[in-house]
Design a protein around this nucleic acid. Structure first.
Length: 286
DNA sequence: AATCCAGCCAACCGCTGTGTA
DNA sequence: GTACACAGCGGTTGGCTGGAT
């Protein structure tokens, strides 16, 4: 088949954008929005750039609410943790950091975080998510997400149980925030595409996180883990008989990072309950 | 002062996913 | 079902900058 090029490259300007070009693009989008096609935008705006270039420039640099400057420690933690779960899904990671772009996060990871992790954890693998050994990416992600969600719910339920004065809206709901975000959404869509048989109710996004937290409580704690494992095992059997549900290696630095929450190490409180609801049941807790 | 080199980051390239005719 | 157009994503490149020699 073959496809016509997106633009006539000989006629197009490349390289760094000038201030004038930026102004033209901003002016056009301010007046007309980005509702048309990026393909036609440069022609309409009077720019000698291809549509892709305009889109990239707008998204990564010119659009409102872009956050510039160094990454905060909280942002770093978020990047490391989401990366530990998803791997090099920069757009998904960026969805967790308002104002940050996938390109910026990718660059930051490649120039700072990866080196730092390689220094502190020589065995660290840079692109793989948590080391659940399954050949099917969709299955692996399914297990990871469901596990993370269960653990987050458990954490919250336990915390509110131990601390009734808690509002239930703490930072330990990290995973649920992610789950309720674009990342979780894309995951759920991907899962639907995969046609897995797993009965999977629950779109947590149907309710607000805090509401869900208050309602899920102990029932969820008791039921979900078993269902998750059963579902996961069923999926393994369905999707790939050779797949080894060997679970994660606790020595994997990615797992350690995942478990190392940025807002206080509250992992201990689930130790006593790990057989009930830890998705990492085979991890040896210290 | 000149050169080299490594790090950073904006931008490009090529591929994939999705919608549509 | 097929071909195509387009948007979006992730990997890679190349120019710029600042520090070292």
């Amino acid at each position: 088949m073959g496809r016509s090029p997106c633009c006539d490259k000989d006629e197009m300007k490349k390289g760094v954008w000038s201030k004038e070009e930026d102004e033209i693009l901003i002016d056009y989008i301010t007046k007309n929005g980005t509702h048309g096609t990026w393909h036609s935008l440069p022609k309409l705006a009077g720019l000698l750039r291809c549509g892709k270039s305009c889109r990239l420039r707008w998204i990564n640099y010119l659009r409102p609410n872009i956050k510039r400057g160094p990454f905060t420690p909280e942002e770093e933690s978020t990047i490391i943790q989401v990366h530990a779960m998803l791997g090099n899904k920069w757009a998904a990671i960026a969805a967790q950091l308002p104002g940050r772009t996938d390109n910026e996060i990718k660059n930051f990871w490649n120039t700072h975080l990866r080196k730092r992790l390689l220094t502190t954890h020589p065995s660290f693998t840079c692109s793989d998510p948590v080391n659940i050994k399954c050949e099917s990416p969709s299955t692996r992600h399914m297990v990871q997400w469901e596990s993370a969600r269960v653990e987050a719910e458990a954490r919250l339920s336990m915390e509110s149980h131990l601390n009734p004065s808690s509002t239930g809206k703490t930072d330990c709901d990290f995973f649920l925030r992610v789950w309720n975000s674009e990342v979780g959404e894309s995951f759920r869509k991907g899962k639907a595409r995969d046609n897995q048989r797993v009965a999977y109710e629950s779109a947590p996004s149907q309710t607000s996180s805090s509401n869900k937290f208050e309602s899920c409580s102990a029932v969820t704690m008791q039921v979900e883990p078993y269902r998750v494992r059963a579902d996961a095992e069923e999926m393994m059997a369905d999707s790939d008989s050779s797949c080894n549900y060997a679970m994660v290696d606790s020595s994997d630095p990615a797992v350690k990072l995942l478990l190392d929450f940025p807002f206080g190490n509250d992992i201990e409180f689930i130790h006593g309950y790990k057989d009930n609801f830890s998705p990492f049941a085979e991890i040896k807790f210290d």
